[in-house]
Nucleic acid binder design. Structure first.
Lengths: 187, 187
DNA sequence: GTCTATACGGGGATAGAC
DNA sequence: GTCTATCCCCGTATAGAC
Protein backbone atom coordinates (compact mmCIF):
# COMPACT_ATOMS: atom_id res chain seq x y z
CA UNK A 1 0.00 0.00 0.00
CA UNK A 2 1.44 3.28 -1.17
CA UNK A 3 1.87 6.14 1.25
CA UNK A 4 -1.03 8.57 1.20
CA UNK A 5 -0.35 11.54 -1.04
CA UNK A 6 -0.58 15.02 0.45
CA UNK A 7 -3.50 15.90 -1.78
CA UNK A 8 -5.43 12.91 -0.51
CA UNK A 9 -4.57 13.55 3.08
CA UNK A 10 -5.85 17.10 2.87
CA UNK A 11 -9.07 15.92 1.28
CA UNK A 12 -9.53 13.16 3.80
CA UNK A 13 -9.00 15.43 6.78
CA UNK A 14 -11.19 18.17 5.34
CA UNK A 15 -13.92 15.66 4.54
CA UNK A 16 -14.03 14.34 8.06
CA UNK A 17 -14.24 17.85 9.46
CA UNK A 18 -16.84 19.06 6.98
CA UNK A 19 -18.95 16.04 7.77
CA UNK A 20 -18.61 16.06 11.53
CA UNK A 21 -18.50 19.78 12.28
CA UNK A 22 -20.12 21.30 9.23
CA UNK A 23 -18.53 23.20 6.38
CA UNK A 24 -18.84 26.67 7.82
CA UNK A 25 -17.59 25.63 11.22
CA UNK A 26 -14.45 24.18 9.72
CA UNK A 27 -11.65 26.66 9.15
CA UNK A 28 -8.68 26.41 6.83
CA UNK A 29 -6.42 26.67 9.86
CA UNK A 30 -7.96 23.62 11.46
CA UNK A 31 -7.60 21.63 8.26
CA UNK A 32 -3.92 22.40 7.85
CA UNK A 33 -3.26 21.75 11.52
CA UNK A 34 -4.88 18.31 11.47
CA UNK A 35 -3.39 17.41 8.10
CA UNK A 36 -0.06 18.65 9.41
CA UNK A 37 0.82 20.78 6.42
CA UNK A 38 1.45 24.46 5.77
CA UNK A 39 -1.23 26.73 4.40
CA UNK A 40 0.79 27.29 1.23
CA UNK A 41 0.62 23.57 0.51
CA UNK A 42 -3.12 23.51 0.84
CA UNK A 43 -3.52 26.27 -1.69
CA UNK A 44 -1.07 24.50 -3.96
CA UNK A 45 -3.43 21.53 -4.14
CA UNK A 46 -6.79 23.27 -3.91
CA UNK A 47 -7.53 26.70 -5.25
CA UNK A 48 -10.02 27.66 -2.54
CA UNK A 49 -12.14 26.30 0.26
CA UNK A 50 -14.96 26.02 -2.22
CA UNK A 51 -12.78 23.89 -4.46
CA UNK A 52 -12.18 21.61 -1.50
CA UNK A 53 -15.91 21.42 -0.97
CA UNK A 54 -16.52 20.25 -4.52
CA UNK A 55 -13.80 17.61 -4.24
CA UNK A 56 -15.43 16.50 -1.00
CA UNK A 57 -18.85 16.09 -2.56
CA UNK A 58 -17.54 14.14 -5.53
CA UNK A 59 -15.48 11.84 -3.36
CA UNK A 60 -18.33 11.19 -0.96
CA UNK A 61 -20.73 10.38 -3.77
CA UNK A 62 -18.26 7.95 -5.30
CA UNK A 63 -17.72 6.26 -1.95
CA UNK A 64 -21.44 6.10 -1.45
CA UNK A 65 -22.15 4.49 -4.80
CA UNK A 66 -19.29 2.03 -4.48
CA UNK A 67 -20.44 0.98 -1.05
CA UNK A 68 -23.99 0.51 -2.25
CA UNK A 69 -22.93 -1.58 -5.23
CA UNK A 70 -20.82 -3.77 -2.98
CA UNK A 71 -23.75 -4.42 -0.70
CA UNK A 72 -25.99 -5.36 -3.63
CA UNK A 73 -23.66 -7.66 -5.50
CA UNK A 74 -24.60 -11.33 -5.41
CA UNK A 75 -28.14 -10.61 -4.31
CA UNK A 76 -30.72 -11.79 -6.78
CA UNK A 77 -34.12 -11.29 -5.18
CA UNK A 78 -35.50 -7.76 -5.53
CA UNK A 79 -37.01 -7.68 -2.06
CA UNK A 80 -33.69 -8.71 -0.59
CA UNK A 81 -31.97 -6.01 -2.59
CA UNK A 82 -34.26 -3.45 -1.05
CA UNK A 83 -33.56 -4.75 2.42
CA UNK A 84 -29.91 -4.53 1.61
CA UNK A 85 -30.20 -0.87 0.66
CA UNK A 86 -31.86 -0.12 3.96
CA UNK A 87 -29.16 -2.06 5.78
CA UNK A 88 -26.51 -0.13 3.93
CA UNK A 89 -27.86 3.21 5.08
CA UNK A 90 -28.27 1.83 8.56
CA UNK A 91 -24.66 0.69 8.59
CA UNK A 92 -23.48 4.09 7.41
CA UNK A 93 -25.36 5.75 10.24
CA UNK A 94 -23.99 3.32 12.76
CA UNK A 95 -20.38 3.72 11.71
CA UNK A 96 -20.61 7.50 11.57
CA UNK A 97 -22.25 7.62 14.99
CA UNK A 98 -25.42 8.99 13.43
CA UNK A 99 -23.81 11.93 11.75
CA UNK A 100 -26.42 11.85 8.98
CA UNK A 101 -26.43 12.02 5.20
CA UNK A 102 -23.55 14.06 3.81
CA UNK A 103 -25.74 15.57 1.15
CA UNK A 104 -28.75 16.48 3.25
CA UNK A 105 -26.35 18.06 5.70
CA UNK A 106 -24.62 20.27 3.22
CA UNK A 107 -27.86 21.49 1.64
CA UNK A 108 -29.28 22.19 5.07
CA UNK A 109 -26.27 24.27 5.86
CA UNK A 110 -26.06 26.23 2.64
CA UNK A 111 -29.67 26.52 1.51
CA UNK A 112 -29.73 28.29 -1.79
CA UNK A 113 -26.47 30.01 -0.96
CA UNK A 114 -24.56 27.70 -3.25
CA UNK A 115 -26.50 26.63 -6.34
CA UNK A 116 -23.76 24.27 -7.54
CA UNK A 117 -24.07 22.30 -4.33
CA UNK A 118 -27.87 22.29 -4.51
CA UNK A 119 -27.77 20.93 -8.04
CA UNK A 120 -25.24 18.29 -7.10
CA UNK A 121 -27.33 17.03 -4.22
CA UNK A 122 -30.50 17.05 -6.27
CA UNK A 123 -28.85 14.90 -8.89
CA UNK A 124 -27.45 12.61 -6.21
CA UNK A 125 -30.88 11.96 -4.75
CA UNK A 126 -32.30 11.33 -8.20
CA UNK A 127 -29.70 8.62 -8.69
CA UNK A 128 -30.82 6.98 -5.48
CA UNK A 129 -34.42 7.04 -6.53
CA UNK A 130 -33.46 5.58 -9.90
CA UNK A 131 -31.69 2.66 -8.28
CA UNK A 132 -34.72 1.88 -6.15
CA UNK A 133 -37.01 2.26 -9.15
CA UNK A 134 -35.09 -0.35 -11.13
CA UNK A 135 -35.29 -2.86 -8.33
CA UNK A 136 -38.97 -2.24 -7.67
CA UNK A 137 -39.75 -2.66 -11.35
CA UNK A 138 -37.98 -5.99 -11.30
CA UNK A 139 -39.80 -7.03 -8.15
CA UNK A 140 -43.34 -6.34 -9.31
CA UNK A 141 -42.88 -7.47 -12.90
CA UNK A 142 -45.31 -10.32 -12.37
CA UNK A 143 -47.99 -8.04 -10.98
CA UNK A 144 -48.92 -5.34 -13.51
CA UNK A 145 -51.55 -3.85 -11.21
CA UNK A 146 -48.96 -2.29 -8.93
CA UNK A 147 -47.97 1.32 -9.19
CA UNK A 148 -44.20 1.19 -9.60
CA UNK A 149 -43.68 4.91 -9.21
CA UNK A 150 -45.71 5.17 -6.04
CA UNK A 151 -43.98 2.19 -4.46
CA UNK A 152 -40.62 3.61 -5.42
CA UNK A 153 -41.44 6.95 -3.86
CA UNK A 154 -42.71 5.29 -0.75
CA UNK A 155 -39.50 3.34 -0.25
CA UNK A 156 -37.33 6.30 -1.13
CA UNK A 157 -39.14 8.62 1.27
CA UNK A 158 -39.15 6.06 4.07
CA UNK A 159 -35.40 5.66 3.78
CA UNK A 160 -34.77 9.41 3.69
CA UNK A 161 -37.06 9.81 6.67
CA UNK A 162 -35.23 7.05 8.52
CA UNK A 163 -31.87 8.68 7.86
CA UNK A 164 -32.88 12.06 9.27
CA UNK A 165 -34.79 10.50 12.12
CA UNK A 166 -31.93 8.25 13.16
CA UNK A 167 -29.61 11.25 12.98
CA UNK A 168 -31.80 13.11 15.42
CA UNK A 169 -32.71 10.24 17.72
CA UNK A 170 -29.24 8.66 17.69
CA UNK A 171 -30.58 5.18 17.20
CA UNK A 172 -31.36 2.85 14.34
CA UNK A 173 -34.91 1.83 15.16
CA UNK A 174 -36.34 3.60 12.14
CA UNK A 175 -34.37 1.44 9.75
CA UNK A 176 -35.76 -1.73 11.25
CA UNK A 177 -39.28 -0.37 10.89
CA UNK A 178 -38.60 0.60 7.29
CA UNK A 179 -37.36 -2.88 6.48
CA UNK A 180 -40.55 -4.39 7.83
CA UNK A 181 -42.71 -1.98 5.87
CA UNK A 182 -40.77 -2.49 2.65
CA UNK A 183 -41.06 -6.26 2.91
CA UNK A 184 -44.80 -5.84 3.22
CA UNK A 185 -44.95 -3.74 0.08
CA UNK A 186 -43.68 -6.29 -2.38
CA UNK A 187 -45.93 -9.16 -1.38
CA UNK B 1 -51.95 46.51 16.49
CA UNK B 2 -49.11 47.65 18.69
CA UNK B 3 -45.82 48.64 17.15
CA UNK B 4 -43.31 45.82 17.12
CA UNK B 5 -40.96 45.96 20.06
CA UNK B 6 -37.23 46.09 19.46
CA UNK B 7 -36.73 42.73 21.10
CA UNK B 8 -39.23 41.15 18.76
CA UNK B 9 -37.82 42.84 15.70
CA UNK B 10 -34.35 41.55 16.45
CA UNK B 11 -35.67 38.04 16.94
CA UNK B 12 -37.76 38.19 13.79
CA UNK B 13 -34.91 39.42 11.62
CA UNK B 14 -32.45 36.95 13.14
CA UNK B 15 -34.91 34.10 12.67
CA UNK B 16 -35.38 34.83 9.02
CA UNK B 17 -31.64 34.96 8.46
CA UNK B 18 -30.88 31.86 10.50
CA UNK B 19 -33.50 29.97 8.55
CA UNK B 20 -32.65 31.18 5.08
CA UNK B 21 -28.86 31.48 5.27
CA UNK B 22 -27.99 29.20 8.14
CA UNK B 23 -26.91 30.07 11.65
CA UNK B 24 -23.17 30.10 11.05
CA UNK B 25 -23.48 32.12 7.87
CA UNK B 26 -25.42 34.83 9.66
CA UNK B 27 -23.32 37.41 11.45
CA UNK B 28 -24.26 39.73 14.24
CA UNK B 29 -23.44 42.64 11.97
CA UNK B 30 -25.95 41.53 9.38
CA UNK B 31 -28.63 41.11 12.00
CA UNK B 32 -28.18 44.59 13.44
CA UNK B 33 -28.01 46.11 9.97
CA UNK B 34 -31.28 44.53 8.83
CA UNK B 35 -33.00 45.18 12.14
CA UNK B 36 -31.68 48.73 11.98
CA UNK B 37 -30.33 48.88 15.49
CA UNK B 38 -26.94 49.32 17.11
CA UNK B 39 -24.91 46.39 18.32
CA UNK B 40 -25.17 47.62 21.90
CA UNK B 41 -28.94 47.29 21.68
CA UNK B 42 -28.74 43.76 20.50
CA UNK B 43 -26.61 42.75 23.45
CA UNK B 44 -28.97 44.60 25.73
CA UNK B 45 -31.79 42.26 24.66
CA UNK B 46 -29.87 39.05 24.09
CA UNK B 47 -26.80 38.00 26.01
CA UNK B 48 -25.11 36.23 23.10
CA UNK B 49 -25.65 34.84 19.64
CA UNK B 50 -26.33 31.50 21.26
CA UNK B 51 -29.04 33.08 23.38
CA UNK B 52 -30.60 34.38 20.18
CA UNK B 53 -30.45 30.86 18.77
CA UNK B 54 -32.37 29.44 21.71
CA UNK B 55 -35.01 32.12 21.45
CA UNK B 56 -35.26 31.31 17.74
CA UNK B 57 -35.83 27.61 18.34
CA UNK B 58 -38.47 28.17 20.99
CA UNK B 59 -40.32 30.70 18.87
CA UNK B 60 -40.24 28.48 15.79
CA UNK B 61 -41.53 25.51 17.70
CA UNK B 62 -44.39 27.54 19.14
CA UNK B 63 -45.29 28.84 15.71
CA UNK B 64 -45.13 25.34 14.34
CA UNK B 65 -47.40 23.87 16.97
CA UNK B 66 -49.87 26.71 16.73
CA UNK B 67 -50.06 26.38 12.99
CA UNK B 68 -50.59 22.66 13.19
CA UNK B 69 -53.35 23.00 15.76
CA UNK B 70 -55.08 25.55 13.60
CA UNK B 71 -55.05 23.24 10.63
CA UNK B 72 -56.49 20.37 12.67
CA UNK B 73 -59.27 22.20 14.41
CA UNK B 74 -62.75 21.29 13.25
CA UNK B 75 -61.61 18.11 11.58
CA UNK B 76 -63.16 15.02 13.04
CA UNK B 77 -62.13 12.09 10.88
CA UNK B 78 -58.68 10.68 11.71
CA UNK B 79 -57.75 10.02 8.12
CA UNK B 80 -58.59 13.60 7.26
CA UNK B 81 -56.53 14.81 10.17
CA UNK B 82 -53.55 12.95 8.79
CA UNK B 83 -54.06 14.45 5.37
CA UNK B 84 -54.25 17.80 7.02
CA UNK B 85 -50.90 17.30 8.71
CA UNK B 86 -49.32 16.47 5.39
CA UNK B 87 -50.95 19.51 3.83
CA UNK B 88 -49.64 21.66 6.64
CA UNK B 89 -46.05 20.64 6.04
CA UNK B 90 -46.59 21.05 2.33
CA UNK B 91 -47.89 24.55 2.85
CA UNK B 92 -44.92 25.44 5.04
CA UNK B 93 -42.55 24.28 2.33
CA UNK B 94 -44.42 26.20 -0.31
CA UNK B 95 -44.49 29.45 1.60
CA UNK B 96 -40.81 29.22 2.57
CA UNK B 97 -39.82 28.43 -1.01
CA UNK B 98 -38.68 24.98 0.07
CA UNK B 99 -36.30 26.16 2.72
CA UNK B 100 -36.87 22.97 4.71
CA UNK B 101 -37.56 22.09 8.32
CA UNK B 102 -36.05 24.56 10.78
CA UNK B 103 -35.07 21.80 13.14
CA UNK B 104 -33.53 19.38 10.69
CA UNK B 105 -31.57 22.29 9.29
CA UNK B 106 -30.09 23.39 12.56
CA UNK B 107 -29.07 19.88 13.60
CA UNK B 108 -27.52 19.31 10.20
CA UNK B 109 -25.50 22.43 10.61
CA UNK B 110 -24.34 21.86 14.15
CA UNK B 111 -24.13 18.11 14.46
CA UNK B 112 -23.15 17.26 18.01
CA UNK B 113 -21.47 20.63 18.34
CA UNK B 114 -24.35 21.93 20.41
CA UNK B 115 -25.99 19.32 22.65
CA UNK B 116 -28.70 21.69 23.85
CA UNK B 117 -29.87 22.15 20.27
CA UNK B 118 -29.70 18.41 19.57
CA UNK B 119 -31.82 17.67 22.60
CA UNK B 120 -34.33 20.35 21.69
CA UNK B 121 -34.78 18.99 18.19
CA UNK B 122 -35.04 15.42 19.40
CA UNK B 123 -37.81 16.42 21.75
CA UNK B 124 -39.52 18.40 19.01
CA UNK B 125 -39.61 15.41 16.69
CA UNK B 126 -40.94 13.21 19.46
CA UNK B 127 -43.82 15.61 19.90
CA UNK B 128 -44.64 15.28 16.23
CA UNK B 129 -44.61 11.53 16.41
CA UNK B 130 -46.85 11.68 19.47
CA UNK B 131 -49.41 13.77 17.64
CA UNK B 132 -49.50 11.32 14.76
CA UNK B 133 -49.69 8.40 17.16
CA UNK B 134 -52.78 9.78 18.86
CA UNK B 135 -54.56 10.25 15.57
CA UNK B 136 -53.62 6.81 14.26
CA UNK B 137 -54.82 5.18 17.46
CA UNK B 138 -58.13 6.93 17.03
CA UNK B 139 -58.30 5.88 13.40
CA UNK B 140 -57.72 2.19 13.86
CA UNK B 141 -59.65 1.78 17.07
CA UNK B 142 -62.17 -0.44 15.34
CA UNK B 143 -59.49 -2.72 13.99
CA UNK B 144 -57.39 -4.20 16.78
CA UNK B 145 -55.26 -6.25 14.37
CA UNK B 146 -53.38 -3.19 13.17
CA UNK B 147 -49.96 -2.27 14.50
CA UNK B 148 -50.40 1.29 15.69
CA UNK B 149 -46.73 1.91 16.32
CA UNK B 150 -45.65 0.65 12.95
CA UNK B 151 -48.28 2.70 11.12
CA UNK B 152 -47.31 5.76 13.14
CA UNK B 153 -43.66 5.34 12.26
CA UNK B 154 -44.50 4.83 8.65
CA UNK B 155 -46.47 8.05 8.45
CA UNK B 156 -43.92 9.98 10.47
CA UNK B 157 -41.01 8.78 8.34
CA UNK B 158 -42.86 9.43 5.10
CA UNK B 159 -43.52 13.00 6.12
CA UNK B 160 -39.95 13.61 7.22
CA UNK B 161 -38.75 12.08 3.98
CA UNK B 162 -41.12 14.29 2.02
CA UNK B 163 -39.87 17.41 3.76
CA UNK B 164 -36.20 16.77 3.01
CA UNK B 165 -36.98 15.57 -0.48
CA UNK B 166 -39.08 18.59 -1.34
CA UNK B 167 -36.34 20.82 0.07
CA UNK B 168 -33.84 19.26 -2.31
CA UNK B 169 -36.07 18.91 -5.35
CA UNK B 170 -37.80 22.27 -4.91
CA UNK B 171 -41.22 20.84 -5.57
CA UNK B 172 -44.09 19.40 -3.60
CA UNK B 173 -44.70 16.15 -5.43
CA UNK B 174 -43.57 14.04 -2.48
CA UNK B 175 -46.33 15.38 -0.28
CA UNK B 176 -48.99 14.38 -2.76
CA UNK B 177 -47.55 10.88 -2.90
CA UNK B 178 -47.46 10.68 0.87
CA UNK B 179 -51.10 11.70 1.11
CA UNK B 180 -52.08 8.91 -1.24
CA UNK B 181 -50.06 6.36 0.69
CA UNK B 182 -51.40 7.47 4.04
CA UNK B 183 -54.97 7.25 2.87
CA UNK B 184 -54.27 3.67 1.80
CA UNK B 185 -52.96 2.81 5.23
CA UNK B 186 -56.07 3.47 7.24
CA UNK B 187 -58.49 1.53 5.09
C1' DG C 1 -32.02 51.52 26.37
C1' DT C 2 -29.65 52.99 22.58
C1' DC C 3 -25.61 54.57 20.75
C1' DT C 4 -20.27 54.56 19.03
C1' DA C 5 -15.83 52.98 19.46
C1' DT C 6 -12.97 49.42 20.05
C1' DA C 7 -10.86 44.90 21.44
C1' DC C 8 -9.26 40.57 20.03
C1' DG C 9 -9.29 36.53 17.52
C1' DG C 10 -10.09 34.01 13.41
C1' DG C 11 -11.78 33.87 8.71
C1' DG C 12 -9.87 32.97 3.74
C1' DA C 13 -6.29 34.00 0.78
C1' DT C 14 -1.58 35.63 -1.30
C1' DA C 15 3.57 36.56 -1.82
C1' DG C 16 7.74 35.07 -2.07
C1' DA C 17 11.84 32.51 0.15
C1' DC C 18 13.69 28.00 -0.06
C1' DG D 1 5.86 21.79 -3.71
C1' DT D 2 6.34 23.13 0.85
C1' DC D 3 7.28 26.58 3.91
C1' DT D 4 6.60 31.29 6.77
C1' DA D 5 5.02 35.77 7.01
C1' DT D 6 1.58 38.76 6.24
C1' DC D 7 -2.81 41.06 4.44
C1' DC D 8 -7.39 42.52 5.10
C1' DC D 9 -11.85 41.69 6.57
C1' DC D 10 -15.32 40.08 9.46
C1' DG D 11 -16.51 37.26 13.49
C1' DT D 12 -18.49 37.96 18.50
C1' DA D 13 -18.43 40.64 22.34
C1' DT D 14 -17.49 44.63 25.74
C1' DA D 15 -16.94 49.51 27.60
C1' DG D 16 -18.65 53.51 28.43
C1' DA D 17 -20.87 58.06 26.66
C1' DC D 18 -25.43 59.91 26.21
Amino acid sequence: MKKEKVHDRILRVASELFYKQGFNSTGINQIIAEADIAIGSLYNHFSSKNDLLHAYLIKEENNWLEGLEKSLVNIAEPSKKLSSIVDYRKKLQQSSKFAGCHFIKIVSEMGEGNPVVSAFVKSHKEKQREIIYTIVKEGVASNPSMNIDLITDQIFLLIEGAVVTSTISKNNDSFDHVKKIVQGLLS
